[in-house]
Nucleic acid binder design. Structure first.
Lengths: 113, 113
DNA sequence: TGCACATATCAACATATGTTCAATCAAAGA
DNA sequence: TCTTTGATTGAACATATGTTGATATGTGCA
């Protein structure tokens, strides 16, 4: 036993409750589809209606709407109605940071593979 | 037309290349499974061998190994061999931040739903 | 070399996911 | 009220994903 370089009990990480893990996993999974991630990336720059999101991502509206539904369910985005339009935006700055973080990490600039 | 409160071209977000989006989505997806996320959470506190990871997450070794393979493929973890053991750890501090961020966000403390 | 331990891989299966088009709902204006 | 426009929902389908137990690899030691 005894560890070969392990940094056990180093940072006092309270193990997250199962429900937290599940919600967090749901969020990651929702962002874990290239097409949905493209939507999230777009929303980094502001609020858009479904038709715009569809156009800018080259998808049918119903497809965009389905993708937005998943993002909404997992609390990655919020929406508001304005007349016939529905505007979607990132849920909060936390999500903003998350998206930027992962896009940044995936950038080859980080040459960490 | 014209926007109803939209914050277009606000933050100069360079649209990420397709390949970056895909890699980023792969990372999110890899973390987007509750069981794999539990492994990542465990690794927040250090380096562990497969047998320990299996034991602590209540899984068979072959199951743990499969899960680790996915995490490895998406560059969320790294590994090193020490004798017969294989030690896994988070790939870098970027991943550490990502995991903490999402677990934090999923915490009900944030009451943002 | 032969055995034992730690991991990894394979293949088969059940389940989950994403897409699509048609149908429906909701708001606005004639 | 009827029509138009924007958005959502439903159902069917193809594809992807996660799990499992058997098998293989790989390392250390006798």
């Amino acid at each position: 036993m005894s560890d070969s370089g392990g940094a056990r009990d180093s940072a006092h990480v309270a193990p997250a409750a199962q429900s937290i893990i599940e919600r967090a996993a749901g969020m990651l999974q929702a962002g874990g589809d290239p097409e949905r991630l493209r939507i999230l990336e777009l929303l980094l720059s502001g609020e858009y209606r479904v038709s715009e999101i569809a156009a800018r991502t080259g998808a049918e509206m119903s497809t965009a709407s389905q993708r937005l539904r998943v993002l909404l369910q997992e609390n990655l985005v919020k929406r508001r109605r304005a007349g016939r339009d529905m505007f979607y935006r990132l849920a909060d700055c936390h999500v903003d940071k998350l998206i930027r973080n992962v896009l940044d990490h995936a950038d080859p600039k980080h040459l960490d593979d």
